[in-house]
Structure formats: C-alpha cells, structure tokens
Design a protein around this nucleic acid. Structure first.
Length: 413
DNA sequence: TCTGGGGTCCTAGGACCC
DNA sequence: TCTGGGGTCCTAGGACCC
C-alpha cells in the first residue's frame, strides 16, 4: 500500500466577528457593518433603550453609525457589503468612516466570539483530531491520515467539515487543502466566502506564481517594499531568483526561506499543542499622557495592567520571571525594557515592582499613547523549575512577616 | 484619518564562563 | 602586549501574524 499523500488544510472562518454578531442581529444581514473600535458605549445605550426586547427586534435605524464614531480604535472585521467600500481589517475607524459613513458599528464581544471559536474547533477535532490552533478564527488540519481525507484531494472531507460547522454554529468558513501549510493558507483565500480550494504540487506554477509576493504568509509590508525595489512583484518573480542572490539580499535564514516558499516547499508539521511564551496586557489611552503631568492617571493605569496581568497568569496557571514594559510614544515609536528576576512570580505587586524598575530606564519626556506590561520566561505554576524559587520567595515573604512582627513588638519606628 | 491588543520568532551585542 | 573560540543568558528592537 503506497504512503498516503500529505494533505494539509487551512480553515478560515468567514468574517468571523461580524458573522457572530449577525447571528444575534439577523436584521443587519446584507448591510455594511463594521466590528471594532473598543468602547461600545453607543451600543450599550442602544441595548439599554431596547432592553426587554429580543435583540433581533431592534430596528436597523437604532444602530450607531460609523460616521458618528469617535475614538482611536481600528476595525476588527467588516461584513462583505462593507468590504465593497474598501473597508477592511486593521483599518482605523476614522479612515473607514470616510469610505463608508453609513456603515453600522458594533463592538467586539470577546466572550461570545471565544464561545463560537471553541465551538467550531470542537466540531473539527471530532472529525479530524490533528488540528493546530492559529487564533480565534483559523486552524490548520492534517487530513493525511483521516479516513476520507484523500478523496478528491481533500475536498470531500473539507465539505464534511464545512457542513458540520454550519450545522452546529450557523457560520461559514473557507478551506484550502494542499501539500503543506504554506500553500493551504494561500488556497483558503482562493474562493471566499464559503469556498473550498484544493492545490497540488503540480499546480504551484500556475496558481501560486502569479500571486503578489505579499500573499506568502511571512512576507509583510517591509519585505514587500524591499522586494518591489528589487523589481520582484509576484511569487514567481521570487522563484526565478537564484537562492544565493536571495540570501545575499535578505540574509541567510530569510533568503533561503523565501526561496523555498516561492517554490511551495514547506515541511512544518501541524502542531496540536504548544506552551505560551509570554502573557501581556497593554492599553492605548484615549488621549496621549505625559509621565509627569498625568502621573496619577498613568500610575493607576500601570497598576491596573499589572493586576489584570497577574490575574491572567493565575487563571492560566503560569508564573514567569522576565517582566517587561512597552511604551508607545505620541510619534508612534515603541520602546521596550525588561528585567529577569531570580524567582518566578504571578503576583501583581512583584510584577509592578519589576516593571517599575524597567520604567526607570526609559525616556519619559515624550507624551505616551500606549503602556503595556509583559511577563515572559513562563513555567507552569508548581512545576519543578519553579519549586526552589517559590520556596525562596516563600522564605522571603516569611522573612518580611517576621520583620513586621518584630516591628510590631517594638512599636512604630 | 493617524494607526488596537495579543502574540511568536529572529537578530545582534554584551556579559560571563570554560 | 596581545588576545582563541564556544556556549548560554540577558536585553532591545523589529518583522510579522491573527
């Protein structure tokens, strides 16, 4: 029996955040809607006004409009009617308002989105257990060994998964099936929404090479500019270059990778589980803040971030020993500082202390638009490498308590 | 019209150790 | 006076992704 052909699927939910909202507000179907922005105050006011009524009964005229939006948010996703106006993900809300002022705005409902995210992934795992989680609305699936995964190059199994997801959630998705993750990712975009595309090694030249370089997952805006300067515009243009030339221009690792990618070569496995590397919290202020003039406000935000972050770590069951901060200045430059401490922690006060040290090493004369706190070098709470450190921290805390007790005995100093 | 929040991985220099 | 090479950890920044 010959070895089965390696078949990898990439599945992408269609306009996920917007589609989840449309399940609640079916009256918005077919209308331009954008999701994002953050605040959600207008939305809350609207819901309050129609409290007691089913959400589906709220008249379309009651929904907040993009042209009335104020704030610094970006669009998370837009419905297909809104995309017709050129509105899309990661676009500033203010810019989108120029393109499509009549679009309706809804805030992101994180809990609801995560619920649907868990739901569609559970459906997939029941059918095809080798699944890699790539975020709320995307996964890779290894079809190779799944019964039926080879039929019509994976199309039959893809159709089954699409139907199962729709039956369970009412949501549609697009799937690409190919010899590897790299091509599958591109293929899932070929026939959106609610499409299936299958690609084989022999199709790379005809279907992949004509695409713009930016379609390769891993070539972003910077590399695109550089490639254009070198007169390379399509993936085929890259494929035609000698490997050494790409290495000379883009460095050893990236140049060689780019050459492989252009030829559709990628042997990364589908990874079913992984440990987090870091956990962070950050926030963009409603207006730029100055470290001195807005000291109290900034200090409160800083503390809040540390408390939220500590809560995240504790809930997830991790401790970490590299504490870092991130600042974004009014000119959008970013600075980071970090500090590795000798014990693992998930304690808000300890995080704040270390992050405070970091803050002392950075320029605070410019106005800030963002502040973030990060914990890295994670280990599972109670895992062997944290034991000694946790015991030491415990002893230290006991030391503090002893000192306090002694201080009590001798009265206030 | 200024551009969110949560991540990963890579590079590169310096410290420090053998 | 000159001056190895390798390994690991720490730190800062940047590209990229969802």
């Amino acid at each position: 029996m010959p070895a089965p052909l390696r078949r990898i699927a990439h599945l992408d939910m269609d306009a996920f955040f917007a589609s989840v909202e449309l399940l609640r507000y079916p009256q918005l179907k077919g209308l331009p809607v954008v999701i994002g922005g953050g605040h959600g105050e207008a939305d809350a006011r609207m819901r309050e006004r129609y409290a007691g009524q089913p959400l589906s009964q709220i008249p379309v005229a009651a929904f907040p409009l993009l042209k009335d939006y104020v704030g610094r948010g970006v669009i998370t996703t837009a419905t297909y009617p809104a995309r017709q106006f050129g509105v899309g993900s990661a676009m500033g809300m203010m810019k989108a308002a120029k393109l499509c002022p009549q679009a309706l705005v809804l805030p992101v409902d994180g809990d609801e989105v995560r619920r649907y995210s868990r739901g569609f992934k559970a459906v997939i795992r029941e059918i095809a257990p080798v699944m890699e989680d790539r975020g709320v609305d995307e996964v890779y699936i290894d079809f190779t060994e799944v019964p039926g995964g080879q039929r019509e190059g994976g199309r039959v199994l893809a159709r089954l998964i699409q139907k199962a997801i729709f039956d369970k959630t009412g949501l549609t998705c697009s799937i690409g099936v190919a010899p590897n993750k790299l091509i599958a990712k591109m293929a899932s975009e070929f026939d959106k929404p609610n499409g299936i595309s299958t690609v084989f090694d022999a199709d790379v030249q005809a279907r992949i090479w004509p695409l713009p370089v930016r379609k390769i997952n891993g070539i972003g805006p910077k590399s695109e500019i550089k490639l254009h300067k070198l007169h390379l515009h399509t993936i085929g243009d890259i494929a035609q270059q000698p490997r050494e030339w790409l290495v000379d221009n883009f460095g050893n690792a990236y140049g060689a990778w780019m050459h492989d990618a252009a030829w559709g070569r990628d042997d990364r496995p589908v990874v079913t589980e992984s440990e987090p590397v870091s956990v962070s919290r950050e926030t963009t202020f409603e207006r730029d803040l100055h470290a001195v003039r807005d000291r109290a406000e900034l200090g409160a935000i800083f503390t809040d971030l540390c408390v939220l972050l500590a809560g995240d770590l504790q809930r997830k069951g991790y401790v970490g020993r590299t504490i870092g901060i991130k600042l974004r200045y009014d000119d959008f430059r970013t600075a980071t500082r970090d500090l590795t401490i000798d014990h693992y922690t998930a304690d808000a006060k300890a995080i704040r202390r270390a992050a405070g040290q970091c803050l002392k090493r950075v320029d605070l004369t410019r106005r800030l638009r963002l502040l973030g706190v990060r914990v890295g070098k994670l280990a599972k709470t109670g895992s062997p490498e944290t034991q000694v450190a946790e015991a030491a921290a415990g002893a230290q805390a006991a030391g503090h308590r002893a000192a306090e007790a002694i201080a009590d005995l001798f009265g206030p100093g």
